[in-house]
Simulated assay, not measured.
Amino acid sequence: MMTMMMVDLSQSPLSSSPKSPSNIINDDEEERLEVVNLSGLALQSLPNPSLNLTNICKLDLSNNHIKKIPESLTARLLNLIALDIHSNQIKALPNSIGCLSKLKILNVSGNFLVSLPKTIQNCRSLEELNANFNELVRLPDSIGLELTNLRKLCVNSNKLITLPTSITYLTSLRVRDARLNCLMVLPEDLENLINLEILNVSQNFQHLTALPSSIGLLMNLLELDISYNKITVLPESIGCMRRLRKLSAEGNPLVSPPVEVVEQSLQAVREYLSQKMNGRLVNTAAKKTSWGFRKLVKYGTFNGRARAWSREEREGLIMPEYRPIDILASTRFPAMCSPRRIFSPRTYFSR
């Protein structure tokens, strides 16, 4: 039976001594090696090991200066379960990463990645993908078609404009963090994410202006963070999210619900949106008053001639007979409708 052995060099300086990474990897105990920690050794490249890489189940190369992961290396890590290469200077992942069929945890955050290889969809056992703090402008279009076991997707602090439609096929997904990007829209058909519990699309600032109505069909969602965007209207379907425990919507120019409703409580937001959905929302906005044609006609503005008014009529106690105002649509009397004539002081405006 193979014995698990952990090699931890994270606290040791890299040197040519007998304890250097290359010498340890070439040790007689190589057949028992399963966990390798080369974190924080200022490595600029990877050593060329002679051991059987298929024995490694966890590999930590984080906090180094590595710029490239060799294709040949990942192609031989057939039993790798966890790969941590965060905080390096990697600009692209090897296509051979698709060979890691047993990989469950992949952490590539804090690098210079512009995209992820399409072959990542072949990592069908993947459960956690952390690609925060990169320069991603897009995700593979087919990323959601094969990663049916993915439970956590973190792509915050990138340059994503959209998320691929296939992301709605991630039925096992529980956490999706896409804050601090340039997202303009979210995919439709979000209701397919039946296990999603946490959704964070905050701080996309002026880019994200609306949410799809399907967001209210995420029946298992517990936390929704849409703060600091340009959203003006929340979908009415959010009123149906009975399991939702936390809603963060500050920093948006909300009109519906009004900010004062959002500031009250989540329950107040639910009630507002539910009433709006059912058409029971009462509009309490004050009606604006303005000058109407009725008042203008009453005082003889449009009848083309002045006439004497009785005291009762001037005080509005008696409603006189109204004159037709068809003249408004006529081109024969432009002077009658001019602002100067309408608002000019006349004797019949006074007692």
Rank of each mutant, 00 (worst) to 15 (best):
L14W: 13
K230G: 05
S45Y: 08
Q11D: 09
P21C: 12
L129Q: 05
N158W: 04
T165E: 15
S142C: 12
P164M: 05
A82N: 11
V137K: 10
K298E: 14
R314V: 11
M1A: 15
T171F: 07
I226H: 00
M4K: 15
L328P: 01
T301I: 15
F293A: 14
N130G: 03
A285T: 09
V297K: 03
R124D: 04
L139D: 03
L129K: 05
P257M: 06
I85E: 01
L150C: 05
H86R: 10
R76V: 04
E135Q: 11
C57Y: 03
S72I: 11
N52Y: 08
N220E: 04
N283C: 09
S62A: 07
S22T: 14
S237V: 00
D84Y: 01
S310G: 10
R341A: 08
M1D: 14
R351C: 07
I318H: 13
Y299A: 02
L43V: 06
E236F: 07
L73P: 04
L78H: 09
I90Y: 00
I325H: 05
A306K: 11
P117N: 05
L254D: 00
V35E: 10
P70T: 14
E71T: 06
I238F: 02
R245C: 11
T162A: 14
V175L: 14
Y348Q: 13
A82E: 15
D326N: 15
E250H: 14
H86W: 05
A42T: 08
I25L: 14
E127G: 02
V259W: 02
R32P: 08
C57W: 00
N26V: 14
P13F: 09
P235C: 01
L33R: 00
G110R: 04
E29P: 08
E128Q: 11
F133D: 12
K298L: 14
S290L: 11
P334M: 02
L147I: 04
T162L: 15
L83W: 01
S237L: 02
S20R: 08
S72W: 12
I325V: 12
F349Q: 11
S115H: 13
S290G: 09
C240L: 11
L222I: 15
P21F: 13
N303K: 15
L38H: 04
Q264T: 08
A268T: 00
E321S: 10
S39T: 10
A75K: 11
R32D: 15
Y228R: 06
H207Y: 15
L100W: 00
K287L: 07
Q275H: 12
S330H: 10
K230A: 14
R341F: 06
L83I: 00
K104M: 07
L80N: 03
F302A: 05
N181D: 03
